[in-house]
Design a protein around this nucleic acid. Sequence first.
DNA 1: TAAAACAAGTTTCATATGTAACTAGTTTGA
DNA 2: TCAAACTAGTTACATATGAAACTTGTTTTA
Lengths: 154, 154
Amino acid sequence: MDETMSVPLKLSDYLPYRLSVLSNTISRSIAERYEAAFGISMRQWRVMAILGEFAGLNATDISERAAMDKVAVSRAVSSLIEMKLVRREATQDDGRRSRLFLTERGAGVYDEIVPMAAGYEAELTGAMDADEVQKLLELLDACASIAAPGRKLW
Amino acid sequence: MDETMSVPLKLSDYLPYRLSVLSNTISRSIAERYEAAFGISMRQWRVMAILGEFAGLNATDISERAAMDKVAVSRAVSSLIEMKLVRREATQDDGRRSRLFLTERGAGVYDEIVPMAAGYEAELTGAMDADEVQKLLELLDACASIAAPGRKLW
DNA sequence: TAAAACAAGTTTCATATGTAACTAGTTTGA
DNA sequence: TCAAACTAGTTACATATGAAACTTGTTTTA
């Protein structure tokens, strides 16, 4: 009967809000560890993670695979090069792009962070059984296909 | 046999990464709508969402309920006051704090954003059945209790 | 084959954000 | 009752970020 009454949104039950708070908490929690240990930011780590998996990609490839824009990749890469964790190799065929690699030192850091990151994920899913983890991933996939129709998020 | 070989992390399968990419995509997607329509940032909207639900809270309360630090709340509030979407009311008993309210105009904006936000959530979960939505929330709760032991995230 | 269109990556600039320091007001306790 | 400790909220400063413009190199096409 009262058209002027607003229908409140319960923020704490709102799925996008929960995802955001949870995701930020998790990201910060992991980042704290490798920042403290190696002085590496989340974006720097993402670039390293991609290069640890796919050595020799160029910046544009990294941009796609790490879901980072090219400016962020450029900045992360140049700082990682200064830190001697990544090196750049000119491509013969195309003078604009260059292939990127972890240095030996970078690979060493990578090898230390990977188990740390994997361990955190294991903790996170530790209270779930395998089916539930599977289900969680599926449900997140379902959200992703709505949130970014067409384009794949990962 | 080869101890020097690194064990790569598959970033695209890594739960924290997926959560982060998904959450950022969703947040940006919703924010685009109310930013375009009302010039309101995500943090400004969060403050408004809290005040739409709990009129008269002070900045510290909002800080807790919106999972934002007090500086962010302070900034969001002062800009919302300039935009005449929020008003501040001094408290009689404590000269430091003040109670905050949506203005009439703020309530109008709130009433337009709420269905937009709710609609987005409905789309997001549209492909799931009720049990699955329930399960998703439960699994996110499980993650939250690991990611932030003790403290409640929402 | 030269101009136009395009692509990779960087730089610039304006704004957003986090941390720490600060101001003003309140509570505690000797 | 008054100094010390504490709390609410703001400001200052250093850094992070995003968008747009730019530089350099490549491809297209007339």
